[in-house]
């Protein structure tokens, strides 16, 4: 017993320097994030100090007060658009994933190919096309319009995730449901969907994050409207008052919160999503 403890202790004491290097590398990589936090707490009069203070010694909440006073409507809009994008994406992609994984549709291969190709279209192209269409439909500067546009960022990826995940559901289970008289819709709703909870979580996280972070659709389709997302809030902040960097960085910190929450609560889903297809229960 003591032997085991000693070896374990030895192993860790032999690798402590690797941990040290790892910490240094991580600190370098995350320095910009720290700097954002540092500046968000810096007082106006210290902002142009040379050299800049490495720590917020006279920390102020002025920047965050500005967020509460000015940016809350933008944050609310982004939240609504993000949730709308999640609902639309899951509603479109989950049935498609089920069909591609389990129902062997004729032409399914072609559809998967089109979905892969669709992911590669540059956002600026989509934005210009949407702009032309929304202009004639009167959908510019509208929340539903932005939800639809943002969902194009996530739908192809979501179908791929659902297809990969649902392929892993045992066929016998679906066969048994069929024998019991359940139709395709019933099987999908009562068996496939409850079993695909992890895929739903992964897809929802990414759909929300991408919609929350979207700048190109927001700036082309929602600019100047009554409901603008937080990315535009920050962008206009930079344009209008580039003196109050504590307010800008405080808004940036608040805009990063969803990413932080996702990293803490759902890190395994994120890694799974990055290497999509490696998704396993």
């Amino acid at each position: 017993m003591t032997g085991v403890v000693v070896t374990r202790h030895n192993r860790h004491s032999r690798t402590w320097w690797k941990t040290a290097i790892g910490l240094v590398l991580t600190a370098i990589m995350l320095f910009p994030v720290y700097w954002m936090l540092n500046v968000s707490f810096t007082r106006d009069q210290d902002m142009r100090k040379s050299p800049p203070g490495l720590f917020p010694t006279d920390a102020t909440l002025e920047g965050y007060r500005a967020v509460v006073d000015q940016q809350l409507p933008y944050l609310g809009t982004s939240l609504v658009i993000g949730l709308g994008t999640v609902v639309l994406t899951v509603a479109l992609a989950a049935p498609a994933g089920y069909a591609l994984a389990k129902l062997r549709p004729r032409g399914g291969g072609l559809l998967s190919f089109v979905l892969l190709a669709a992911q590669m279209i540059p956002g600026i192209i989509m934005a210009m096309g949407f702009y032309a269409i929304y202009l004639s439909l009167g959908l510019l500067q509208s929340v539903p319009g932005l939800i639809v546009a943002d969902s194009t960022l996530a739908v192809p990826f979501a179908v791929l995730i659902f297809t990969a995940f649902m392929s892993g559901i045992p066929g016998e289970l679906l066969q048994a449901a069929k024998t019991d008289g359940a139709g395709a819709v019933r099987t999908f709703w009562s068996i496939v969907m409850p079993m695909s909870r992890n895929a739903v979580v992964t897809v929802s996280l990414f759909a929300f994050l991408w919609s929350w972070s979207d700048f190109i659709f927001a700036s082309t389709l929602a600019s100047g409207g009554a409901h603008q997302p937080i990315t535009l809030g920050i962008y206009q902040y930079i344009g209008n008052n580039n003196q109050e960097w504590n307010a800008i960085m405080a808004t940036a910190v608040v805009a990063s919160l969803p990413a932080a929450v996702i990293l803490v609560l759902a890190q395994r889903y994120v890694a799974a999503g990055v290497t999509a297809g490696a998704v396993k229960d």
Partner: peptide, 10 residues
């Protein structure tokens, strides 16, 4: 992963 998760505007 943090830099990858942050909104690009941030």
């Amino acid at each position: 992963l943090v830099p990858w998760l942050l909104p690009l505007i941030v």
